[in-house]
């Protein structure tokens, strides 16, 4: 694709930004035409090979003042609409929905405040496509497992923060780009006007997979949105219920493999071999073949000072149990241990 310009976007603010962008662009073009025009004229006509003789003027206070003032006036003309737009963008009062967006290495977490909805959203493009082992799909690198879902026509206030390093949440169509800074909260807002799917990316270097933490926003009509809310809530309840059930080793292994591939394989590799010097191997590692509680502990709480995160807050008890079971039995580890979700819940308290 040979796309050359920013998107007019899907909100009133985005269109305003687009217009501002076009105005300043054309002003620059106009100034460029004049300046380069005079320069080109001189290059063509005042060249020695054409017999041009140098004239002797080299100072003129009046022109200097003139070409100080004119740009100044042009700048003021640009600053006025820019200020107006900026003030609007900063007004996040009277929102209908508050969503806390937290950046993690390398995924996003969305919490609908007061709605009991809380989930993670990570890249769903398969590694094979990235490694050129499979044909790349249409939305290569711009697709996630759980998109952020918003209702149409409502003012959504975003509260950005991060759990580890700085990330930045950008969806061009909403004209929202705001840094997610650990320990602080930044606000921004949008009123999406049309149902649709809008894609964006993390735009602050946040480590190895900075290029692999896209954002997908699905804007739905109110009714569908409400339905989605209800479905998501009941799915969460089902999860909670599942944590009290007994799981067989096979069930855990199957589920564990999926969890491993989305949450762990980026560092420890799908083969469990890790990357020497950077990420430890899990295959054959005493960490995952000996003491179960130590293993659970490190997965729950991470290891300080390393890239090993605390997954206790990111995954539910079933997923944790499954992935730990998987690690203890995959790649020839074959301990035969199976960890049940209840054990995780116990340790978490």
């Amino acid at each position: 694709a040979w796309e050359v310009n920013i998107t007019p976007g899907a909100t009133a603010i985005a269109r305003e930004v687009y217009d501002l962008h076009m105005i300043i662009f054309w002003i620059c073009v106009a100034i460029g035409v004049v300046v380069f025009g005079v320069m080109l004229w001189s290059i063509i006509h005042h060249r020695k090979s054409r017999g041009a003789e140098a004239r002797n003027f080299h100072e003129n206070t009046a022109v200097e003042i003139l070409w100080t003032l004119i740009p100044f006036v042009i700048l003021i003309a640009m600053a006025i609409p820019a200020t107006a737009t900026l003030i609007k963008m900063y007004d996040s009062t009277d929102a209908d929905i508050d969503i806390q967006v937290t950046g993690y290495q390398w995924k996003w977490r969305y919490q609908y405040l007061g709605q009991d909805i809380d989930f993670f959203s990570s890249l769903s493009t398969p590694r094979e496509q990235i490694n050129n082992e499979a044909a790349k799909g249409e939305n290569y690198l711009l697709e996630v497992d759980n998109p952020l879902v918003l209702p149409v026509g409502k003012k959504v206030r975003f509260l950005f923060t991060a759990a580890d390093v700085i990330h930045s949440w950008w969806v061009p169509d909403l004209a929202v780009k705001k840094d997610a800074i650990p320990g602080f909260i930044n606000e921004s807002w949008a009123i999406p006007e049309e149902p649709g799917i809008y894609r964006g990316q993390c735009t602050e270097l946040c480590g190895r997979d900075h290029g692999f933490m896209p954002i997908v926003v699905e804007v739905k009509p109110q009714a569908e949105f409400d339905q989605w809310l209800a479905d998501t809530r009941s799915a969460a309840q089902a999860q909670a219920a599942a944590a009290t059930e007994e799981w067989t080793l096979e069930q855990l292994m199957e589920r564990g493999e999926q969890v491993y591939n989305t949450s762990c394989a980026a560092c420890h590799q799908a083969s469990g071999q890790g990357i020497p010097g950077a990420f430890p191997a899990l295959a054959g590692s005493p960490m995952v073949t000996t003491d179960i509680d130590a293993h659970i502990n490190i997965v729950l709480h991470g290891k300080a000072g390393t890239a090993m995160q605390a997954f206790g807050a990111q995954l539910n008890a079933v997923d944790l149990a499954a992935v730990i079971t998987y690690e203890r039995n995959a790649w020839g580890n074959d301990t035969g241990d199976s960890v049940n979700p209840q054990r995780i819940t116990e340790l978490q308290q």
């Binding site: 290059i43 041009a52 003789e53 003027f57 740009p71 700048l75 640009m78």
Partner: peptide, 26 residues
């Protein structure tokens, strides 16, 4: 930040004015 364009512009204009009615070689 926008203000910086003013003095920088002065520089650019002065260069162009130096070329203007000069006897240029390349």
């Amino acid at each position: 930040t926008m203000l910086i364009a003013v003095p920088t512009g002065v520089k650019v204009f002065n260069w162009v004015a130096t070329m203007f009615h000069g006897s240029m070689t390349f």
